[in-house]
Amino acid sequence: MLETLLQGLSSSSIYAVLALGFVVIYKGTKVVNLAHGSVMLLGVYVISLLAPRLGFWPGAVIGILVGAAGAVVIQFMTNAVRSKDHLVMTIMTIGINVMIAAELTHEIGDATVFTGDPWGNRSLSIGGSSFPVSRLMALIVGSVLIGVIFAIFRFTQFGVKLRASAVDAETSSLLGISQRSVSIWSWVIGGGLATVGGIFLAAFPANGLDSGSATLAMSAIPAIIIGGMDSAGGAVLGGLIVGCGEAVARRLIPELAPVLGDSFASVVPFILMLAVLLVRPSGLFGSKVVQRV
């Protein structure tokens, strides 16, 4: 029971970090970054190249910066759309994703990408069950990051500007809030968060990432839909629901395995997502989308 809970919490934190990245970008620019997974893989790949030479922490910092920089480049490209239609920009991220994924597939090839994180495959014993240190770190770092993001939203000027622009971009710009800077910084944060999520995804008990791992980030999408795409709190709650739902499903799998199979656990988030979309499309905490016709 405790083990399931801890497992659920730790994978929740990874989902939450990834989901938060999506949400910050969406709040800042109303674009769903479908290239998030590629940005994640890019950052982790850079870490895997640098960490052996510079050590994990310097490598991680640079990798996160590269992820953020890559995200900003994507922002510039989406911003070039003349009509400023958010749906068009979202579709453009699909094209960008194809490009980055192709290049990374070429670079990485069949190899596996390791970050060389300091937690390795050590485990702690908590309440009688063994728990990977890396997952514990995911939980701690994830929670800290979530706290920091919330603090930024509430207490800094940038956070206020971001929230204002999310509610009403036109009025905000009339009030002097630079949409440009809000957009760029939200992508910076999003890209950085993606890389952080990737670091933990690559860590034990997973065995690194490979060229196809970019799609793993897509698993965070149920979290943002369930929580509401423009709600940071929703992203965290969504991450919790998805992570714990998955852990519970995995726990129950041995009983249901003959019928449902092992990979059912990864489908659970999407089934939950469809259910939420049917009942409450804007998510649990998202602002209501007024559909008039």
Binding site: V32, T90, F264, S266, V267, F270, M273, L277, L278, Q291
Partner: peptide, 20 residues
């Protein structure tokens, strides 16, 4: 019931479920 972006996300779910 959905439009635009939300519909796109919902269709994503289909892909993953079908995969499974």
């Amino acid at each position: 019931r959905l439009g635009g972006l939300y519909l796109g996300m919902a269709s994503l779910a289909l892909v993953f479920i079908a995969d499974y």
